[in-house]
Amino acid sequence: MNIVNDLGLDSIAVMNFTMALEDKFDISIPLHDMASVVTVQDLLRTIETLRSDA
């Protein structure tokens, strides 16, 4: 699923979504890590990487 096209999120909504994810998982997700996220699968991978680094 494409996060922007299929869920109807604009760029600001994606950034706000990122803040919510940071709080949900208690991690820091720098904006440039989100730049390459297109699908939910990408997002999952990014969060898993950030959590294992933390």
Partner: peptide
Amino acid sequence: SRLGHAPVVRF
């Protein structure tokens, strides 16, 4: 924040 190279976090 896009021109620079630092990771960016919003509050």
